[in-house]
């Protein structure tokens, strides 16, 4: 028995301890009615709402819409900002001349830019995606540029001495050399895009998406529905992060070696 508890079985269960404790406390709080049950439904009621939302309802539909917006914003950010970051990072002088602008916008809360983008792009799909892409793009840009600047120069030198053209050094060496840092940027970028998309769905005239669903549920006091949607957003955020970590591990097999 002791063997089982301290062995592989216990190891497999360790990560679940926190989740079980959390659900237990939640259940306890709901059962003891610490908070008004309307505000804090039991885990069972929420689980049922999640189940209904995923199986029959349109939670899954809203989730897909949010994923689509997030990935679209992320894709735009990657396509524009990875090459730009490579360029900026390979010239210290170029980076220094843009450093202030990048740092400034990176420090400006992207949500403060909504009004600006609304004026330019109107209350449509494009504003949500554009603001998210902008925020994610800056994160990707700056991480890629840093990855390039801080990459050890020996491999680039090795490629140059073997006669590789500057373009080849850039795509065949510098890009890969900076990839671990670029991935850090992409991982924070996609999480950031998700945050912005959900906020945008809440507040700028949206008829679908997880953000709109949360705020609607809250307005009609449908708490299980609200918790279910929050849970859906959590799963989404966690899932995106996990997918990136898995891709990273597979793709950057040499990382840290």
């Amino acid at each position: 028995m002791k063997d089982i508890l301290s062995g592989r079985f216990a190891n497999a269960l360790t990560p679940a301890v926190g989740a079980v404790a959390f659900i237990f406390l939640w259940w306890l709080a709901a059962w003891l009615k610490v908070v008004d049950p309307v505000l804090l439904p039991s885990p069972q009621a929420s689980a049922k709402a999640i189940w209904d939302g995923f199986v029959g309802g349109n939670l899954i539909k809203d989730l897909i819409i949010t994923v689509r917006r997030t990935l679209l914003a992320f894709g735009i950010a990657v396509v524009i900002c990875v090459p730009l970051g490579l360029m900026l990072g390979s010239s210290v002088r170029l980076y220094r001349s843009f450093e202030f602008v990048i740092d400034f916008f990176r420090s400006t809360p992207a949500s403060a830019l909504f009004p600006l983008f609304l004026v330019i792009l109107g209350v449509g799909e494009s504003t949500k995606v554009a603001v998210a892409a902008f925020g994610a793009g800056l994160l990707i840009l700056f991480n890629t540029a840093y990855g390039v600047m801080n990459a050890r120069k020996t491999r680039q030198a090795a490629a140059r001495v073997m006669g590789a053209s500057p373009l080849r050094v850039m795509t065949g060496v510098t890009l890969l050399e900076s990839l671990p840092q670029t991935f850090v940027g992409m991982r924070s970028g996609v999480s950031f895009a998700l945050v912005i998309v959900i906020v945008a769905e809440m507040f700028i005239g949206s008829t679908d998406g997880l953000g709109q669903r949360v705020i609607n549920a809250q307005m009609i006091f449908n708490m299980p529905e609200m918790y279910a949607t929050i849970f859906g957003a959590g799963v989404l955020g966690y899932g995106l992060n996990l997918i990136f970590i898995l891709i990273e591990r597979r793709f950057i097999h040499w990382g840290g070696k």
Partner: peptide, 11 residues
């Protein structure tokens, strides 16, 4: 190069 670790392409 002296430092083969930094000179070979690990990918």
């Amino acid at each position: 190069f002296q430092n083969y670790r930094d000179a070979l392409f690990p990918w």
